[in-house]
């Protein structure tokens, strides 16, 4: 474990806590894409299949359980909680995310570390996570004004994988045999997808203005 990865995991956890806070405190999920949340739940479920077979550390196991439980709770809330589901922007959240599922799965069948059930699903989860934010970014552009908590949520979500890139660089220097090409290239693509959001987030922070994404 290195500081970049630890900070990355904490940033990821903070993003989830911000989203839970938004939904719990405002009883609203306006501006949040249910499709992105469903994709994240799938990412965690397919990536952490080794949860009960490979014990790595208490930290690792606890974090996996937290990520799986929180992502499922958010999807459940957005689908079933009477107040929250009413605030869901169903007519704006129209990204055809099934294509992302299919593309990620096909790519995982082609590109993986080992042609084994768990490894193919691990690669699938890595590719899917890279593109899972797309429905959310599209929804933000369509809904125009972005409320504060939603903006922070997306910012921390993007920042976590950027920190992971430093983690991979660090691990490469420590041990040149350490190669995680699939995760690293995917992580670069994932972070690049946030580029324009980060730009408008920075502008709004600099001008101390509301976060506005151009339509």
């Amino acid at each position: 474990m290195n500081i970049f990865r630890f900070l990355g995991d904490m940033t990821h956890l903070i993003s989830i806590l911000i989203l839970l806070l938004k939904i719990y405190a405002t009883k609203s999920c306006s501006g949040i894409s249910l499709k992105t949340q469903e994709l994240y739940a799938l990412v965690f479920l397919t990536r952490y299949l080794d949860l009960f077979t490979d014990f790595i550390s208490v930290y690792n196991t606890v974090m996996k359980l937290v990520f799986i439980a929180s992502s499922l709770a958010i999807v459940w809330c957005m689908r079933n909680h009477p107040l929250v589901r009413r605030s869901y922007d169903k007519q704006l959240d129209t990204f055809r995310h099934y294509f992302l599922l299919l593309a990620s799965f096909l790519l995982a069948l082609l590109l993986h570390e080992k042609f084994a059930f768990q490894e193919v699903l691990w690669a699938f989860s890595i590719y899917l996570e890279a593109v899972a934010i797309l429905p959310q970014l599209v929804l933000l552009q369509r809904s125009g004004n972005v409320d504060n908590l939603t903006g922070q949520y997306v910012f921390f979500l993007g920042a976590y994988r950027a920190l992971y890139i430093f983690n991979w660089i660090y691990r490469y220097f420590i041990d040149p045999h350490f190669t995680r090409w699939i995760a690293c290239v995917s992580g670069l693509v994932q972070t690049a997808l946030y580029a324009d959001f980060f730009y408008y987030y920075f502008i709004s922070w600099k001008n101390n203005a509301k976060l506005q994404l151009p339509a």
Binding site: D9, H12, D50, I56, W122, N167, R180, A183
Partner: peptide, 10 residues
């Protein structure tokens, strides 16, 4: 030889 850790990252 210890099986290399499959994926030790989250």
């Amino acid at each position: 030889k210890q099986q290399p850790r499959s994926h030790d990252e989250l």
